[in-house]
Design a protein around this nucleic acid. Structure first.
Lengths: 338, 338
DNA sequence: ATGAAAGCGCTAACAC
DNA sequence: GTGTTAGCGCTTTCAT
């Protein structure tokens, strides 16, 4: 099947190629009589004409493709929700959002050889090389990193506010050691630590987890035993995400701690499965649709050559209170009254 | 910043535009002296030259973009694994895989106006409209649907084989009513039913679930009570995926059934969180990397204008045996001996 | 109101 | 070996 070009449509409609272009692009500059428009439209439909995207972007000097870049980190459902929403709002702008997952060994330069997007949306922090590529390519980069970090900075706070509100005085932090999410993990635990300070509580003990493999719970159980020993035991844990919250619950059981009575656990991301753990998982849900909208708005404002930072709103973080969090058992040791 | 073109590089290197093109594309037809090559490469690097993808695909008459199409169904981590792997193998072919999520209201035609991929990979069944668009666009479609269905047809069988092997004689099925995954859900439950027949067991009672909302477990608990009533109770359940398996476990508890003693439960997808449920979730893991490789191989064979079906291999399905599955309690009622 | 014509940046056949 | 040249299909200015 030979591709149908505008010339074919023009011939079929008995007009020139430029008329076809005008009619199809609905230029405001020129108005064509109904009959001409109808003839062109009919011919285009009959021949199943699809404009050549490459020719069109070459001539216009720009494309209507928006490229969202993330990496191959096994991500939960949260990022999927963000991408779905982003796809929709970008589509509403008459552009197309496609996603590309960077991997160890694959460079942004590769995809930019095959595709010149109108703008690149940075959803995961670029490495130095990719950053240089993006900068040199002349394609504007819309970075969502600051917005994401802003959101993250409320995540740990939401966890701690909830736990402190329940009366917990010693809170531990379970974080993850994984380079690709390091920046987010750091933001989450930093905001948790900040919140603890704000509540006048001690700095948290931190357990840094590697792979979420089978041994993870044993390792963590050891930390929990240590944290809960002594006169001033940890009674609550703020976890990096729901997966590690689930592991923490399993670790608690192995350490002989009952959740939530001996230990309250709070995750992040509101994974669907978390609602069906027993006890059901208390978690922090981030409002990704709102972030998608913010990104889309920045996109509409059309970052020229300078990067644009989306400013997320702090309240786009909501606690989902379920079974793994409750008040500490009969007050802390240092509260002898009552 | 004005875009650097091949002409700029040519001027800087003191050669013609075609030489630049030849050198950069490494044509086999012509061989240039080291010095020329070096000069061109140096100039390109120094000017930070990026070829214009649109011009290049326009001229070549094709692009090196592969477009993977799926829909906005909230998918688990399994599909993410598939996409990551696919991105990698496609990159190894010197092409770029980008992903586009179709949504209610957004059409494939929209993205094809902004992007002309070399081939479209159909990961979720197209609707009639998108199928027509794809066909009319002249872009070959590589459908992974048949391969996915082939895989699915082994999923239910793997669940049932495991359960029958443990001695279960009455097995129920929990499936989902969601148009976007209907074809896969049907394949899973059909293969479970087939397997039961093969084992000489009765056709399964089927619970069709809607949303995985809070009420889901109550609804399902009612079904479980019914199934386990009477002389020939259901002792095991094959679930659509891990989420519904978790809901089934919760429902079992509400129905006063102990998992796995009164009821064995098997999921699908090997969601990371499933390993931390209690009891830990037995599940079926599908070998997506193998599927990605198969798709990539078909891609390399370069579907001309006809669609190509990837043939998946049945053994790319593996049972992950964990805590929710065990032998039925002291044999079935009809096994009076022993 | 419509058409002719000039490229967008690149590739590749062909000439020198 | 290297340069010249002719478009790929489209948009858009400028004539008519």
């Amino acid at each position: 099947m030979n591709r149908v070009t505008a010339a074919d449509v023009a011939a079929a409609a008995g007009v020139s190629r430029s008329t076809v272009s005008y009619v199809l692009n609905g230029s405001d500059r020129v108005r064509f009589p109904e009959s001409t428009v109808a003839r062109v439209l009919e011919a285009a439909a009959r021949l199943n004409y699809t404009p050549n995207a490459a020719a069109s972007s070459l001539r216009r000097g720009r494309s209507d493709v928006v490229l969202a870049v993330l990496h191959d980190m096994p991500h939960g459902t949260a990022l999927g929700r963000l991408l779905d929403e982003l796809t929709a709002v970008v589509a509403a702008q008459g552009r197309s959002l496609v996603t590309w997952a960077a991997r160890e060994g694959s460079a942004l330069a590769d995809v930019l050889r095959d595709l010149t997007p109108r703008v690149i949306v940075e959803l995961m922090p670029f490495g130095d090389e990719d950053r240089a590529t993006a900068a040199g390519s002349g394609v504007p980069v819309l970075s969502a990193i600051d917005a994401l970090l802003d959101l993250e900075s409320h995540v740990g706070a939401a966890q701690v506010d909830h736990l402190a509100g329940l009366g917990h005085r010693r809170v531990g932090v379970v974080t993850v050691d994984e380079p690709r999410v390091e920046v987010f993990a750091r933001a989450r635990r930093a905001s948790a630590a900040d919140a603890l300070r704000r509540h006048g509580l001690a700095a948290p003990p931190v357990a840094v987890m590697g792979e979420a493999g089978a041994a993870a719970a044993d390792v963590l159980a050891e930390s929990l035993r240590e944290w809960t020993r002594g006169p001033d035991p940890v009674t609550a844990v703020a976890c990096y995400n729901d997966l590690f919250a689930a592991i923490t619950c399993a670790a608690a059981e192995r350490a002989g701690l009952s959740v939530p009575h001996d230990l309250a656990v709070v995750g992040v991301d509101d994974e669907p499965l978390g609602a069906w753990l027993s006890p059901t998982l208390t978690t922090v849900r981030v409002d990704l649709p709102a972030l998608a909208t913010a990104i889309a708005a920045a996109l509409a404002g059309d970052a020229r050559s300078r990067d644009v930072d989306v400013i997320g709103e702090g309240r786009d973080v909501a606690l989902v209170v379920r079974g793994t969090s409750g008040a500490p058992r009969s007050g802390s040791v240092d509260q002898t009254s009552r």
